[in-house]
Design a protein around this nucleic acid. Structure first.
Lengths: 243, 243
DNA sequence: CGCTCGTTTGAAGCTTATCAAAGTCAGTGG
DNA sequence: CCACTGACTTTGATAAGCTTCAAACGAGCG
């Protein structure tokens, strides 16, 4: 695996806790098994019992769950630097699937190996648990969104969150960030119909908060977006972030 | 602390993983600081930075988040045996508050002590992480509910989940379990208005799936409730449960 | 007995879903 | 070079689900 591949994980961790040199070295020295998966493919199957966990090196992935009628809900979006299913190390059977929304590069590492390094380096083990907990905090914010925010605020919130998370791993470009998904997928994140998702996006455009073309979101009015979203990044746990 | 107080934690853990005698002994020997808190009081304040975690020994508690307009969303219900904010061990600032929905007995234990025993007993540390991960799985199911299930199915799902979780800690009585909250609180769980919550409850009664009086839910038709809810308990991670 | 809190009912309105069709655009083959 | 195709976005019209407001009802309590 190319050396810089692990950089986004290092960035994700070190913005949230101190990451000593030796622990960083341990992570870099791990025997990651990398793979490239095509867009729309399943990285991890629902109801399976993986014996390894998967780090996202590049691309956009999602946890997805479905109802019998085919309705799909995406419960978390994953960006580079995210451990996509550390959860499977602690839960024996997957309660959801993980799908690649774009082409993704991923790196696998065995649960046994992760358990070994957690025992040898307890602080590193705690960092892994912190990622699980951060994940859960992101999910809680999404529960608040789905339960109590209306469509527009919900979408604004998503854009704010993605901007901040992508910023951490150096994947934003000024006030723009990549979002190479279609509105049908976005609807599955928002818990809305495609039609209403489209109308909601159009309204954010019309009020000049954002634009969205060619798979890129440009934020034109960050303060306005934050206001509409009632966005407070505490839940992202970015304590050591510079701002 | 009376000896049996910790039993519900032991039950919660041992239904999900093997819990060796010595680890159980470690948990029982911990220097828990117990407290009784009145209904409606805050156990942990939003935006605070606790240095201890809180185990629920008795009663019903909830993670709560609010919007500026006062709308409240409950993101997780906690029952006896649940670690209410293990998350705070890994996240420095609380992204939500924890409130007692009924009078609660709780037991606090310092984060430092938890870190010590996690280092000395790595498997026990992993059990703690498993509780965080189980919590996250419960939240994911709730995201699916809020995003894609309509009110009736959402409520049915909640009742199925609570029944199974309370069963683990021996808090059900036949086909009944305690739910000593009012419909306003239930509305905050479901992400609905009080009025619609009331109508949804009445519909479950009218179709003879459940009854609800005096703070007790009686399930009259488990299979019907499961069917309506599309309830699949995989996400509760009850691997070692007998059924 | 009158209060208060919680539940229930009714009516109107808003947000979002559903259905159907048209518009746009990039890619493809004739 | 142009018509065709298929995926995606956009628009319009109607309906369903849920919220809001207002008021009545009921049980427990000082």
């Amino acid at each position: 695996m190319p050396k810089q591949d692990i950089d986004s994980l290092i960035a994700t961790l070190s913005v949230r806790d101190r990451l000593p040199r030796d622990e960083e070295a341990v992570l870099r020295a791990l025997d990651w098994r990398t793979r490239t998966v095509p867009a729309q493919s399943e990285i991890i199957t629902d109801r399976s019992s993986p014996d390894e966990s998967c780090l996202l090196l590049d691309g956009l992935a999602a946890r997805a769950m479905s109802l019998r009628n085919g309705d799909r809900q995406i419960t978390t979006l994953h960006v580079l630097g995210d451990f996509v299913d550390l959860h499977s190390m602690f839960l024996s059977v997957m309660d959801h699937s993980v799908v690649a929304l774009t082409q993704c590069r991923v790196a696998f590492i065995g649960h046994n190996r992760l358990r070994e390094i957690s025992t040898e380096h307890p602080h590193l083990g705690r960092l892994l648990s912190m990622m699980v907990a951060t994940d859960a905090a992101i999910q809680r914010n999404w529960i608040l969104s789905l339960g109590r925010r209306r469509a527009e605020s919900r979408l604004a919130n998503l854009f704010c969150e993605l901007y901040r998370r992508l910023e951490v791993v150096g994947a934003v470009d000024g006030a723009s960030f990549p979002l190479p998904i279609n509105q049908s997928t976005l609807a599955d994140v928002l818990g809305l119909s495609i039609v209403h998702t489209n109308r909601t996006v159009q309204h954010l455009r019309a009020t000049n908060l954002i634009s969205w073309q060619g798979g890129t979101i440009a934020i034109h009015d960050w303060d306005g977006l934050v206001e509409l979203a009632e966005f407070d990044p505490v839940y992202l746990n970015l304590d050591l972030a510079e701002r």
